[in-house]
Simulated assay, not measured.
Amino acid sequence: MDVRRLETLLMLSRLGSMRAVADEMYTTTSTVSQQIAALSREAGTPLTEPEGRRVRLTPAGRRLAEHAVTILAALEAARLDLDPTAEPAGTLRVAGFGTAIRRSLMPVAACLAVDHPKVRIRIHEHEPIEALSLLASDDIDLALTYDFNLAPAPLDRSVTSRPLWSAPWSLGVPATDPPLDAPAPEVFARYRDAEWIANSRGSADEEVIRTIARMADFDPLVTHRADSLLLLQDLVVAGLGVGLLPADQPTRPGVRLLLLRDPRPVLRTYAVVRAGRTGWPPLALLLNLLQTAPPPPT
């Protein structure tokens, strides 16, 4: 099978329309259609079917697109093996939560733009459960995710996870509240009658809240949900509740961070890829840069 046609099929599976593929490849829709038709003849089965004014991949087309990922990665790895001076090339689709994008990915992306201009990154902001779903459907190449030591996230054998950095978290309360140096259950006990704020797009921080609250013998009332940590702080300042916040980041005026220990909640970040894909040179390069980058500033 022609490699260029496999690349076209893979791009169609990812972008969803021949027009988008044509724009990405700087060619015409007619040329893309001809490439897919020729690949269908090579495969001996239809790879696309009409869907309104557009086309979609047939089951055979989706399976071949899956194979194309591995085939094209192997060819790229072979090219670099035969010519170690060759530059990795390709477009990496990365999804991750905002903090990891700002603290880990953006500095690396800036380095890639200078040192490896043939490697391009497309960035999408998503919470871990969303990013892992996109990874499973091959809509992205790498997911930046997190969990907490008190709420570890299970991963199946279809993915490979590499640890990046970790950060302790504290309890964000109104600045008018007095300090309290005590084990986490005692800190939580002070707020047993308070309203609590949790993430609106993930459950990890709420699991931590409920884990520590159980140690203090109460069931927290989670009444507000916010995706943005800045919005969470606004809610705290307004006296609408308390919630978990990074201990290593500055807070807005009006917010006090109470240290949590015994147990101490720690957020742990990961770079996650599909199993068997780490050999693709652009992805291997990005993983290496992410893992060897200096720890993010506190």
Rank of each mutant, 00 (worst) to 15 (best):
residue 100 A to L: 09
residue 97 F to E: 01
residue 124 H to W: 00
residue 119 V to S: 09
residue 64 L to F: 02
residue 121 I to H: 02
residue 62 R to T: 12
residue 94 V to G: 03
residue 42 E to S: 15
residue 103 R to D: 13
residue 40 S to I: 06
residue 80 L to H: 09
residue 101 I to T: 05
residue 35 Q to W: 13
residue 108 V to Y: 00
residue 50 P to H: 03
residue 97 F to C: 01
residue 96 G to D: 00
residue 52 G to P: 10
residue 125 E to M: 10
residue 63 R to T: 10
residue 68 A to L: 07
residue 76 E to C: 01
residue 122 R to D: 15
residue 150 L to Y: 00
residue 144 L to F: 01
residue 45 T to E: 11
residue 137 S to M: 10
residue 147 D to R: 00
residue 78 A to L: 13
residue 117 P to H: 04
residue 87 E to G: 04
residue 148 F to L: 10
residue 52 G to V: 04
residue 133 S to E: 10
residue 130 E to K: 09
residue 110 A to K: 13
residue 143 A to T: 08
residue 40 S to C: 10
residue 90 G to Q: 07
residue 73 A to V: 04
residue 72 L to Y: 05
residue 58 T to Q: 02
residue 84 P to Y: 02
residue 116 H to F: 14
residue 82 L to I: 06
residue 94 V to F: 00
residue 77 A to F: 05
residue 40 S to A: 15
residue 116 H to T: 12
residue 37 A to F: 05
residue 139 D to F: 00
residue 143 A to S: 11
residue 123 I to E: 15
residue 51 E to C: 14
residue 70 T to A: 12
residue 77 A to M: 10
residue 113 A to P: 03
residue 81 D to T: 08
residue 68 A to P: 14
residue 56 R to W: 04
residue 70 T to Q: 06
residue 155 L to C: 10
residue 108 V to R: 07
residue 90 G to M: 09
residue 69 V to Q: 14
residue 85 T to I: 07
residue 97 F to Q: 01
residue 91 T to F: 09
residue 74 A to W: 06
residue 79 R to D: 10
residue 137 S to H: 13
residue 144 L to N: 04
residue 75 L to E: 14
residue 57 L to S: 08
residue 76 E to G: 11
residue 131 A to M: 05
residue 74 A to R: 07
residue 102 R to H: 15
residue 146 Y to R: 00
